[in-house]
Each structure stands twice: as structure tokens, then as C-alpha cells.
Amino acid sequence: MSDLNFFFEVLIGGLLSGVMYSLVALGFVLIYKASGVFNFAQGSMVLFAALTFVGIMEKGIPFWPALVVALVVMMVLAVGIERVVLRPLVNQPQISLFMATIGLSYLLEGLGQGLWGTQVRALDLGIEDMPNETIQTMLGIQVSTFDIFSAISAALLVGLLALFFNKTRVGLALRAVADDHQAALAVGIPLQHVWAIVWAAAGLVALVAGLLWGSRLGVQFSLSLVALKALPVLILGGFTSIAGAIVGGLIIGASEKLAEVYIGTFTGGAVAAVENWFPYMLALVFLLVRPQGLFGDKIIERV
């Protein structure tokens, strides 16, 4: 086994897990773009979605209907959040909305675990988390089948969302709201509906992310911590850019795995957990050069 092969293995493994981070970051971007809310509860939504899905599956309902039911639950949740949390807070400073979503994340964690229990559940999507044999024989590199599968689902989801945003009438309304709330209201776009739709879309992304992460880590509380991994992705890519979320995820995923392997060996081997803070440092240093992230809208301030 050559060093170069090992490097590529780590790199590809990192890139593919980066795709999973992108999935979570995508949920943040959707909501931030359309409503200017930095939704800290996205991680809890991932957890809640996965818990709901597994809980429904345990009732003996097969995969696809369970998926539909979980999706409906996420949509109801989205409408509820818009009605109960966001609408009364219209016109409040962004920081208040942010803190409200922290409260929301506590609420969702408690609710999800209260409804479905706190024990760790296995979630089996029927895909092995084993090195893919075809690739191994062709290139001599070990890449997990599961990683490839999740990368493809993420790509599909992003494609769908891009179509939805760019080709449909609702998508047009979403982009208008993202551009300017007041102007959108002035031309008659119902802001409340748009927000409900965006939160529902974020719920859908959370569900997909929850399923993929859940089958890797088991459905349990630590799923909500995945959001913390997505934050550096988010600031690296820029809050307002879907492409940024993808590229940022790839960069963070690859660099954190490489850092874990190559910096981690200096400071005490596999337990060093460099990957807990390295992405943040990377993003922090990067922000000093580009304060709006890679693809974020340029921040223009008027006094």
C-alpha cells in the first residue's frame, strides 16, 4: 500500500463525507436565503426527522409510506414554526430570531426524544458501509459504497432544489423574497406562504440528511451535533449560496480528514480529535480573507 494511495483514500473519504456535511449546510442556506434567519435548529430538525422516520418504521410501516409520513410531519412542523415562532418575531433584529431558533432546537430535541424515546436505534437503508469492490479492483483505492450512495443522493437533491428554485413559479417567489422582503411583499408575494414552503424544503433536506447520517451513526441524540459540523461549511461557503454549501462541504470534509491523519499523528495519534476544531479554524482563517465566505453575497452596509 503506497503512501499516495493512502492519501487519495483519505482525500476521497473526506470529500464524500463532506457531501454529507453539505446536506446539512444546505438546510441552513435555504432558510437563510429566504428569510434571513440563521436557523440553529437545523441539526435538531435532522434529529427530529430521523427519529420520526425510525419511530414510524418501528410501528411496522414499510419504507416508502414511512418516508411520506415523515415528510408530512416535517411539513406540518414547518408550517407550525412559521406560525408560532417566526410570525410574531417579524421585524425583530436578526439576533433575536437566531436566539429563538436556539430555543427551538432545544424544544425539538426534547420533543423528538420525548415522543420516540432516547435509546439508540439502528437505521438500515440496505446499503453496506464497506469498501466498494468494483472501485477497489479498478483503482486499488478503498471507497465506501455508502459514501458513494450518499454523495449521489445529495447530488440528486441539490439538482432537484436547483430546478425548483430556478424553473418553477414558487421558486421565483422564493428568489424574490430572498432578494428583498419588502419589494416582494409590494408585488404581492405572500411572505408567510413562502416562509412555510422554505421551512418545509429545509425539513425535506433535514429528513434526507437524517436518514443518511442516521444509518451511519445510529439514530440518536448526537445526530443533532452534526449541525455543528455544518457551521464551518456554511461560513466557508457563504450563508447565501447553495453552491457554496456544496464546495464548502467538500473542502471541509477533505481537509478535516487530512488534518486528522497528518496533524493528529503529531499530537498523539488517533484519539487526538483534531477534526473537532480544525474546520472551525480553517473557516476562521478563511473568513479573515473573505468575510462573506467563498460564494456569499458581498456584505454591503449602509449607515
Partner: peptide
């Protein structure tokens, strides 16, 4: 120091860097 260039949520996430880094240093 980054607060001079980074504002708002970007800064909030940047302070998370402090949180995780400090915790890691004292653990390791």
C-alpha cells in the same frame, strides 16, 4: 481580533472556533 472583519453570524460561528479549540487544548 476577527471581529474587526467578521460580523454577525459569521462572528458567532467564529467564536465557536474558540470554544472547540480551547476545549481540545485542555483535553489533549
Amino acid at each position: 481580533l476577527p471581529s474587526l472583519r467578521i460580523k454577525g453570524f459569521y462572528l458567532a460561528v467564529a467564536t465557536l472556533a474558540a470554544q472547540f479549540f480551547i476545549e481540545w487544548v485542555f483535553t489533549h
